[in-house]
């Protein structure tokens, strides 16, 4: 859990994530604003639908991905502004069609090597 170091002094703005309203200091990285509000799961992975949230906070790991205006962005690199509407990346339907996962990939590679 993450808690504030001090009472916020900057301008407070409202934004929306996944249908919920949140308040944060303007300009705070979106990922920090959500972590501060107790949200640590931002998305599900396309491979196994496992939950993920911020990991590096510096734009390197791409685990904090969210969608703004239908564009996938890194929440740690996106400053909060008033009225921002943030959506979760649509959850992939992993049950319907198996992803070309690593074990299967290695079988293919095995065949390729034999060929």
């Amino acid at each position: 859990m993450f808690t504030p170091l001090e009472t916020a002094s900057g301008r407070q703005v409202t934004f929306n994530f996944d249908g919920r309203e949140f308040t944060a200091q303007e300009g705070t990285p979106l990922a920090a604003a959500l972590l501060g509000a107790g949200v640590s799961e931002f998305r599900s992975t396309p491979v196994s639908a496992s939950p993920r949230g911020p990991f590096c906070m510096m734009g390197a790991c791409f685990d904090c991905l969210v969608q703004i205006d239908d564009v996938t962005v890194q929440a740690c690199m996106t400053p909060v502004r008033d009225g921002l509407v943030v959506k979760r990346i649509p959850r992939p339907d992993v049950s319907a069609e198996p992803h070309d996962s690593a074990p299967q990939g290695s079988e293919n590679s095995r065949e390729a090597l034999r060929a």
Partner: peptide
């Protein structure tokens, strides 16, 4: 290490500098 709630230590420090947050417990 991929679970939500697991971050790099550097990330926790960035949150102090840039989010005004500190990790608790």
């Amino acid at each position: 290490w991929t679970l939500p709630g697991v971050l790099t230590a550097g990330a926790a420090q960035i949150l102090m500098k840039s989010g005004g947050l500190v990790a608790e417990d």
